[in-house]
């Protein structure tokens, strides 16, 4: 199903994350950051919740992703466009679509690796109590899907501009909007202005809503649909953007 050339590019990309210290630095920052947020005493943290579950951990994942995923995705295309290596890439026997998919999958796998690095917490929680493992697995699945969606958004903005910093900022803003779309203040604001259907519309568009509903233990096809469609369309947008540039 996945073309050979896509797989090769994907593996090359994944390796490139580790050729410079950048990949390791990112992983360390991510793991330290989420560890700190989860256990730091205060708002909704692990010991404060007195619950042998990973809900404190999953609660902070979206916010860690908000800043760190754009950091990963900004590298995807902007650098290559600026340095011109993108021409080299596209003269090789690979279509734009395959290249976009390959880079996306590579960045997704990288985040998956970062999530894998957090698994020792599962042991902590099982030692301290009797957690609901189904919910934990679902939480990781939700995090992984959300990472995919945010990466697709990031890839789009990375393809949009030659400047990495600009794409980082745009991605953070876009991800913030998508994450907060379902939050109470915004929904209230919308419900004051527009009929009920628009409120439902925004709720269904919110990444956080879908993430929360999976993380609480129920996996609905509507959640899967949301992430699949989001990823598909943002990748599709990246392909359009890069195709245009290829023609120039």
């Amino acid at each position: 199903m996945i073309a050979q050339v896509t797989k090769e590019l994907m593996i090359k990309e994944i390796k490139s994350y580790f050729k410079t210290p950048l990949g390791y630095v990112f992983l360390v920052i991510f793991l330290f950051g989420i560890g700190y947020l989860t256990f730091e005493p205060g708002r909704g943290s692990f010991f404060y919740m007195r619950e042998a579950s990973m809900s404190a951990f999953f609660r902070y994942i979206p916010w860690m992703f908000l800043f760190l995923i754009p950091a990963v995705s900004m590298k995807l295309w902007a650098e290559e466009r600026k340095s011109g290596s993108i021409e080299l890439l596209l003269t090789m026997p690979i279509t734009v679509r395959q290249a976009v998919v390959a880079k996306f999958l590579a960045s997704w796998a990288f985040i998956g690796l970062a999530l894998l690095g957090t698994t020792p917490m599962i042991f902590t929680v099982s030692y301290l109590g009797n957690p609901d493992f189904g919910v934990i697995i679902l939480g990781y699945l939700a995090s992984f899907l959300m990472a995919g969606a945010l990466l697709a958004v990031g890839g789009f903005f990375s393809a949009l501009t030659k400047n990495q910093v600009v794409s980082f900022i745009l991605t953070v803003v876009a991800c913030f909007i998508l994450i907060m779309a379902g939050s109470p203040p915004i929904l209230e604001f919308i419900s004051a202005l527009l009929p009920k259907y628009f409120v439902d519309l925004f709720e269904s568009l919110s990444v956080l809503n879908h993430f929360d509903s999976i993380e609480r233990g129920v996996f609905s096809l509507s959640n899967l649909w949301f992430f699949a469609v989001t990823i598909f369309f943002w990748l599709f947008g990246s392909i359009i953007l890069l195709n245009e540039n290829k023609a120039n």
């Binding site: 609901d132 189904g134 519309l201 568009l205 996996f219 509507s222 949301f226 989001t230 369309f233 599709f236």
Partner: peptide, 30 residues
Amino acid sequence: KIFLGLFSMTLMIYIGTTLLKRARVDFTQE
């Protein structure tokens, strides 16, 4: 194209999530 893409994505998500809301699996222990 991008604008249309965004618009159709929003529409697809909304319709799909509304229709598929009932299709769910409960993974909680209890």
